[in-house]
Design a protein around this nucleic acid. Structure first.
Lengths: 231, 231
DNA sequence: GCAAGTCTTAACGCGATCTTGATCGAAGCT
DNA sequence: AGCTTCGATCAAGATCGCGTTAAGACTTGC
């Protein structure tokens, strides 16, 4: 049983919204609703939903304006729900950035299945959870604190961002270039020695024996990774 | 104009294949074709297409067997094309791992648009799958680890890259020049001696009896290849 | 303007890895 | 058989990459 996700429903028809709300709620999804383009954009920024269900006929204009208003990287996947089933409409919407297009009327189980498809791709652009935990290491982004086995430790800004990058994909190796580019900016991809110094500092703070790291592992010649705790 | 990608068409109807082939070719996509489940799986391994168009009614069984035969990480995105439009069929296919589901008959422009959708997610390029498996040897690129029968083994950077090159096209012989050029750079194509030393090291690590290799085979006078497991 | 904390930069030691040369065996040719 | 060629193996030296330390420059808050 997957945990439900937050779904933003954008439609000006209250009937449709209620139908979708109950359907989604019945399968463990939290819903947020919007009736106009402006509300939709605002809700995406505010709630960072995992999926957006978007009707095209909105009172303040074409629903695709929502897609154009936000760059693809900071936009949740959008499934268009439209009464119009013309092939041309679908092509326009898909090319505008929609992930899928369902023609009304559609069945609830198909909609739920298509939501599962975009959710399982997940990761990607979806916002990282506010609190990450990898083994004994817990990163609380809103509070900007890191605790290890419950004990709070102080990290410098760079150390925090390094650890955050690694914790977003536990087990995966991040290359030197990736880390440098994310933390110091794309112009710093050459300065691999930055990493050595700051990784050493990180290890001193969060490893029991910094000389034999258990979590912050080096992949020689490639990069670093945070060990994924056995499931 | 985006560069076309390789598309695998899986359908037992020659008419359908020809229609899709010409449609796709007209939009810059190279096509590969398969008529059975076995052919499809083989073609995915061999050609690593960027997308698969999958018909469900194949002579040797349910087309969804293709999805079940390959783990999600080493499988290109699949768009199901089916004559059956029942909601239940769609849900089953989508939950089995398909990225999209089109009911025949469909329009060419919608199909092309939906192909563009899955391609833009994958970065457009037909990248090698993240996880490769050849016989008991499994290469996990994001984690940068190699396991053999589940046991993790440590490879040096050069060994890892050599094995990766070979595993990208199991069964095919890579010449000395190709391997040297890929791993050491184009200026090193003369130093065939490097290969002997590092291949020996690789065999020590992943062959049960390095003197009689089962997987890392020498093609005398030509190069090396990784044996393709019987399908 | 001072002080604490943080980041950059350089130098050094160490272990892992790569290169290089020598030796041995197998296969093919004269 | 003897020679030649190619591949496998081994070991030693050279090199590379990483961790560590510390000093100076910079930022930040008081």
């Amino acid at each position: 049983m997957t945990a439900g996700s937050t779904v933003l429903v954008v439609d000006d028809d209250v009937q449709v919204r209620r139908f979708l709300r109950t359907t989604l709620a019945g399968h463990g999804h939290a819903t947020v609703e919007a009736g106009t383009i402006a509300e939709a954009i605002d809700a995406i920024r505010r709630f960072q939903p995992a999926v957006v269900l978007l009707d095209l006929g909105l009172p303040d204009g074409d629903g695709l304006a929502v897609l154009r208003a936000l760059p693809a990287e900071q936009r949740p996947p959008v499934i268009v729900l439209s009464a119009r089933g013309q092939e041309g409409d679908k092509v326009v919407a898909l090319d505008a950035g929609a992930e899928d297009y369902l023609t009304k009327p559609f069945g609830a189980s198909e909609l739920l299945a298509r939501i599962r498809v975009v959710l399982r791709r997940g990761g990607g652009t979806a916002a990282t959870p506010a609190i990450l935990q990898v083994g004994p290491i817990r990163i609380d982004q809103p509070r900007h604190t890191v605790t290890i086995d419950g004990r709070e430790i102080h990290l410098t800004p760079i150390e925090f961002r390094l650890l955050l990058e690694l914790a977003r994909c536990p087990g995966r190796v991040l290359t030197h270039r990736q880390l440098l580019s994310e933390v110091w900016g794309p112009s710093a991809v050459e300065h691999t020695h930055y990493l050595r110094v700051h990784m050493a500092a990180l290890r001193r703070k969060l490893e029991a024996d910094p000389a034999r790291p258990q979590w912050l592992l080096t992949e020689a010649g490639v990069g670093y990774r945070l060990r994924e705790p056995a499931a």
